[in-house]
Design a protein around this nucleic acid. Structure first.
Lengths: 181, 181
DNA sequence: GAGGTAAACGTAGGCTCCCTACGTTTCCTG
DNA sequence: CAGGAAACGTAGGGAGCCTACGTTTACCTC
């Protein structure tokens, strides 16, 4: 059965506040602040999102889904990886909170976001194995770990440049035909 | 003037407790728990270590100093980097708290640990530029960012293997003479 | 050894945040 | 427009951070 009207509105307000506050103050924002900002009590926030992780996941649901899409139709898998990395960098730039979600560790029961991203990487790597444009001796897990470095970079003005170089390094390391100058 | 005897003893007890609790429960351990474990009040902890970061830095002072040492005497810079990376992986494995310290971001005023490590990497990279064994188009900052991935890996039993592969990837990417199979 | 003093200490408490129990209000359906 | 389920807010316990303040303790001097 559908949510009641007030519940729907509160939920939407919470997601909106969360998106803004995560962007402004990082993923560690007090949940009580999010609730206050949304004009709602903390209990309501917990009712809709039982954990911080759940709130982050819902907030970035669209972004996560987009990262799951891979276009292997045109060009080699290496090209697809390059495109995917560019999108990943862009998301990482604006959505720092995503990092905590993607790298939320507990061995089992990892959040869906992680699975979606690993899945996308796996498809690209498999394609690279088929068309020979990517080395076959690294798995999605390896690549994701390398990209984890993004979240350790200070978020200053040179972040995009740094991140792009990191991505290029990963790409070069995975490509069979090196593009070194 | 030297510390008073009781102060010295308390300080040592705090460092000992901190080392154990950081290792057991990660870098997020409650400082009050550290104080309690050391048989000391929380105020005393703050008197000796004004911030969590300061406590971590002191706890791992020896490890940090060791990471600052680089042996460029024998073999190429690439070999030196390989050795340094091995040590780095080992430290990262046992001292997860170090990560928070090394990657503590604030643009200015970064803690000394970061500087020590960046310095060591810079010396290795410079040597690699001289002897031609390492690519010259990446700086210490880049390398450190790549290694940041270590701290996003789940700390399960396969951690060492994963970490070693990451390090190898970085090494391969930086070496001029590729060691790909 | 007996003080005197600065250094070091612990207690206590305010603040913020997390999370839950419980009584109250609000929406929807008939 | 009433009844009941759904959703809500208030209130509060617990944990952790950090500081103010009064008390204790080691060291130095005589």
């Amino acid at each position: 059965m559908p949510l009641r009207a007030d519940a729907r509105a509160n939920r939407a307000a919470l997601l909106e506040s969360a998106a803004r506050l995560f962007a402004e103050h990082g993923p560690g924002v007090a949940l009580e602040a999010v609730a206050r900002d949304a004009g709602v009590s903390i209990a309501t926030l917990y009712r809709h999102f039982p954990s911080r992780e759940a709130l982050v996941a819902e907030t970035y649901a669209a972004e996560i889904a987009a990262l799951g899409e891979v276009d292997l139709a045109e060009g080699s898998a290496a090209v697809a990886l390059a495109h995917w990395l560019t999108r990943f960098v862009e998301f990482a730039r604006t959505k720092r909170a995503l990092g905590d979600l993607v790298h939320a560790l507990p061995e089992g029961a990892s959040p869906p976001a992680r699975g979606v991203i690993l899945d996308a990487l796996e498809r690209i790597l498999a394609a690279g194995k088929r068309d020979g444009s990517l080395r076959a001796d690294h798995d999605a897990y390896d690549v994701l770990a390398l990209l984890g470095g993004f979240w350790t970079l200070p978020s200053g003005p040179q972040w995009p440049e740094r991140a792009q170089r990191l991505a290029q390094f990963v790409l070069d390391g995975l490509a069979t035909t090196s593009s070194e100058p």
